[in-house]
Design a protein around this nucleic acid. Structure first.
Lengths: 339, 339
DNA sequence: ATCATAAATGCAAGCGCTTACATTGATGCT
DNA sequence: AGCATCAATGTAAGCGCTTGCATTTATGAT
């Protein structure tokens, strides 16, 4: 072996096949532009050398990376996993690669990640929710990086969204709760700061209360971060109130699971003494006992459609179009009529 | 605005600060090599222009990417999420970025992803398990890309591993099962093809049976892919055997959860009529009722230590050292004495 | 002051690829 | 046969950065 081995380059392939680097490049990127005979010769050289194009060089020269970035609040739980998986499958089919990072629900972290992804040459970005510093959208706009927002639906924003109406979805669930006679409601919510989904869900509950002539102020809301334990703690707090709520609507399934477990621990029967509902319909919602009444979100469809929209924006330069998906309430064991 | 705006480059910063590009570059990468006065001037220019270095160009010139790649079998469930999260936290602390892809348990997909990550300039790789075509390790070796294998422990392999002894861990659990009087054992395993963890776990059961004078051949093993539904189906199949097993040891918690749910559906009481165990101790294991007796794996510790090891290999060029972590059996409700 | 020495900075050569443009050689028309 | 046309390929100019080496400037000992 002549030198201490280093990856073969386009040039090596070109030499071996007896053509110019341009021809090799074309063989790889646009095969029909080169005649059959040369192409097979080139391809032979490629596989003989085990050549893999250097990505950085390619991005630099082409100013295209066929990479799409996604920044999600967390990877630790299942909420985003399913939708993201579908998103990734779809972009993969179209020849793109996904770069994921998680912001841990911190706006500054998200901003940094956005810049990082742009610096890495991402052709487009998937973001969760609309709530963020408008400067970020300006920045992306100047850089001409298409963005699609998911998990939230709101037309006429800086970026098109492919999502669902969190407010209306939660309202529908709250309506159902009230139909069962509940009047003393409480909510356990994710932190609403910088999280439009959480905020809209709470608003949805208020909408429904208003429509049913209940005083909105009677809604007791506890905000907490996204962990089963915190759902449990919040539930305990609610249940030690002088006047216990008869239904606790949780902002997501994870918090609801915490609440269910805490009820079990406190010997409070569900749904006889208290009803509990979730949101998202993750797998856990049907595994747990009692199983969770919750709002089903078409995660896979959302991921797939967001991918289609984003790639369209990248490839046609279109400004994008918002898409609203339907959710529906799934009735399971954790919600029952008021005692 | 003079031209249709495009991101500022090193050159723009250099001009604005009245220095050469070399100085700007040094300011960014090795600040102490440039005197205070110039440095502040440069930094001012940087922030004024909102400059972010172009990643591709940097990788290309420096032949270092400060990026580490990880290829995991799946993102869809929690098994790898926690360990990976810890891995990512640790490398982030050390200034590296993580690139994750999932192979969907397909060797060819994994091989392709490895090449992709290398082409993207990954400085090192995290892989799961030792089972793969040796050519891949040769390739990585020639490219001088350090690799650490996790979720499995086996010294004297092509790559160092930071993991646990799957075989011994499962054996310990099986011992406990047999201590409770069970002699009719069955197993529901992940596909063992190309999955050393799954294979070793089954071997562990056999070891324990042998040690207890049970005929290994009496162990009924069903292999299936990683989904709750499949665990349920496998369990149903086992329970319709003429002679039902009294204990079903599952290769992981997800399959065990499926088994538990199916038992519930069939009206089979756990652990009175049949005991079920899992492996991994994911969150679900303590949420489900009956809660799961399982093997606890120190996922976070493993992720963190694998990161430390890998970065050490990258930075010192060392060949790496294997590390064995301890697991322990967690006793919960799903395992009881034989009827 | 003077000069060796070291610190700070500049110069410029790539890194491996894509692509606009130039060149070559067929092809088919009159 | 002669020429326009077009398909196939080659030439070479970057893309934005890092870094070895050369050059300038500051430092301090004589």
């Amino acid at each position: 072996m002549p030198k201490p081995w280093s990856a073969p380059t386009l040039d090596d392939v070109a030499k071996k096949a007896g053509v110019s680097t341009a021809t090799v490049s074309r063989c790889l990127n646009d095969p029909k532009r080169v005649v059959e005979a040369t192409r097979t010769r080139v391809m032979a050289a490629v596989s003989e050398l085990g050549y893999t194009p250097n990505f950085a060089a390619r991005v630099m020269a082409a100013k295209r990376s066929f990479t799409i970035g996604a920044i999600i609040p967390t990877m630790e739980n299942a909420i985003f996993a399913r939708g993201l998986q579908a998103f990734q499958e779809e972009i993969h089919n179209q020849g793109y690669t996904l770069l994921v990072s998680s912001s841990a629900y911190q706006p500054e972290a998200e901003e940094e990640q956005i810049r990082t992804l742009v610096a890495r040459g991402a052709d487009g970005l998937l973001l969760i929710g609309h709530d963020r510093d408008p400067r970020i959208f300006d920045y992306l706009d100047r850089q001409k990086i298409p963005v699609v927002v998911a998990w939230s639906f709101a037309p006429n924003q800086s970026a098109p969204s492919v999502g669902f109406d969190n407010r209306q979805a939660m309202q529908a669930l709250a309506e159902q709760v009230m139909k069962l006679g509940h009047t003393r409601l409480a909510a356990i919510s994710a932190l609403t700061q910088g999280n439009d989904r959480a905020r809209f869900r709470i608003e949805g509950i208020r909408d429904a209360m208003r429509a049913n002539g209940l005083p909105e102020t009677s809604l007791n809301v506890i905000e907490t971060t996204y962990e089963i334990e915190n759902g449990a703690a919040a539930f305990e707090q609610l249940m030690s109130l002088p006047q216990r709520p008869t239904a606790v609507l949780c902002g997501n399934d994870v918090l609801a699971v915490g609440a269910v477990r805490q009820a079990e621990k406190m010997g409070i029967s569900i749904p006889d003494e208290v009803s509990i509902t979730g949101f998202d319909d993750i797998e856990l919602a049907r595994i747990i006992r009692p199983s969770l009444t919750t709002v089903h979100v078409p995660h896979r469809e959302m991921g797939r459609k967001a991918a289609v929209e984003l790639i369209d924006m990248i490839e046609t330069g279109s400004t994008g179009q918002s898409l609203r998906l339907e959710t529906n309430v799934i009735n399971r064991e954790s919600l029952g009529p008021v005692a």
